[in-house]
Amino acid sequence: MKRYNVFYFIFEALKGMKRNGVMTFASVAVLLSCLLVIGGFSLIVMNIDFNLDQLGNLNEMVAFCESDADDATVSRIHKEISALDNVKGEPILSTKEAQLEALKQENESLYGDITDEENPLSDSFTITYEDNSKVPELAYQLMQIEGIRKVRNNLELANKIEAVKHGIMLVFIWFLAILFVVSVFIIINTIKLSVFSRRKEISIMRYIGATNWFITLPFIFEGIFIGIASGIGSFFILKFGYSAIVSGAASDIQMISFISFSEISTVVLIAALGIGIITGVLGGLISLGKYLKD
């Protein structure tokens, strides 16, 4: 089997890029912009997601015991709650005495006179759960435990936040798809120009017996190089841009926490290169199609 020299393809690709220098530059610039928009949007979405997840108390619910429950009942309830599926860790007991104490410290004049005997509060358990989608089930199971009077959860709020996250994701995916298509078209145009300027060469190659792969590969490499250049460029712009914005904003807006770029840099780099290379390959394949038909 004869071997082809991979440097031939790379060399030819670089030559093609040089020949259509302006167009190559233009497509790197446009693809770079697309990647920047995609990347910027991804970072925003990642941060929103990160912050929403930080609202950890959303996956908690509180179960109140009967107000006359004695210590034995409370410890039985504790055990029964621990045994349930979907309960993460140990339920945290807060006794009615402790709750009254907290209220007294908050407002002595209003609650100061209430004695422990008169205490209208009840012992409660704070339960952390694992699976959001099984909250109604868990609430039902808790209500079945003898001695539990009431269960309170944040399901509605959690659902709303979940819906917002879904909405953002949906917009994000559409956004991504459109930008991806735009990028592919830009690369197709560049490579088409390159193909056009070499159509004579291509027709000669075909007469001599070059396989379609042999003819196509330099153009695919061209697309890949454009993709890599844009990918690397956008990575560094995102890196410095994001870091600058975060360090500026973090001091101003303290209620929002930001992901540090180093945590996600690999993902961003791989994504930028990946999208660049995929658009490059697609662009190369699509733009050459009609020249290879016999």
């Binding site: 075909r206 007469y207 001599i208 017996g209 070059a210 396989t211 379609n212 016999d294």
Partner: peptide
């Protein structure tokens, strides 16, 4: 896909 290989038998 075999056309290129056929053409290699020809000099044009």
């Amino acid at each position: 896909r075999k056309i290129p290989y056929y053409r290699r038998q020809l000099g044009v």
